[in-house]
Computed example of a mutant assay.
Amino acid sequence: MSNPSSANQQPIPAPVNTLPADQAIVGSRTIFMGTGAPTAFIEVRDSKQQQSYGEGYVNKNARWVFSAKSVMLPGNYQIQTRQTLNNETSAWSAPRSFTVVVPMKIEAPEIAQPQEGEQTDASPVFSGKAYQNGGAVDLFDMNANQLLVSASVLPDGSWRTQALQPLPVGEHRISALHRVAGDVSDWALLRTFSVRVSK
């Protein structure tokens, strides 16, 4: 006799892709982002499901994000994504197309601080380098998909700022865009750090 709950269980749906946007122009180390089932394992592959471009886990807020795991050559790409949870794997998502251009008109900025895996206090300093003069660097909380803070780019290409509001304890994932005269770069490599409990 079959278990009624298992008989009525729906298959796990394919995850949703939000970045890169369909038909977007991106750099060689772009970011992949979307939504899925919390704690599920995400895979991003080409449309033939052979070449892997990145993988990671969905957080408790149902969001997943990671940088391309290797440099992508210029050209046209089509990707699909799937998720695995409790030994059940979804179907592949609908194809998503984008184009990698090298170099881009505005190169992605670099995040120097916080360093990868660093533990910080609740008001960390954010700093890094931009590769074009002028404009501003926008830092985003990628877990919440919202703007965190902006910093002006100095004449030497450096930028530096601090969180406007204390960040909650726990893991944070950030990335950045550089805006110059109406043009916008691709995303900086994802940076993960943790806010420690204050003593």
Rank of each mutant, 00 (worst) to 15 (best):
N86W: 05
N61W: 08
A14Y: 04
A24R: 03
P103E: 05
G34K: 01
A37Q: 15
Q146L: 09
S175R: 07
Y53F: 15
W187S: 05
S6P: 00
S152T: 13
I12Q: 04
F41Q: 09
P155E: 06
A176V: 06
S158N: 13
I12A: 02
L167K: 01
A7E: 13
P20R: 02
I25M: 10
R96L: 14
P109L: 01
M33T: 00
G182N: 08
A136M: 13
Q146D: 11
M1T: 12
S93I: 02
V195W: 00
V101W: 01
G27S: 09
Q49W: 08
K105A: 14
E116S: 06
P20C: 00
S5D: 15
P168R: 10
D183H: 08
D186N: 11
V137C: 06
E171H: 02
N133Y: 05
L85D: 10
A94G: 11
L154S: 14
G54E: 09
T192E: 04
M142G: 00
A37R: 11
Q83L: 08
I31M: 10
G182A: 09
L177I: 07
Q165Y: 08
D186A: 11
G34N: 01
S90L: 12
Q115M: 13
E88V: 09
A21P: 01
L139D: 00
P13L: 11
T84Q: 07
M1P: 12
S47F: 10
A188L: 10
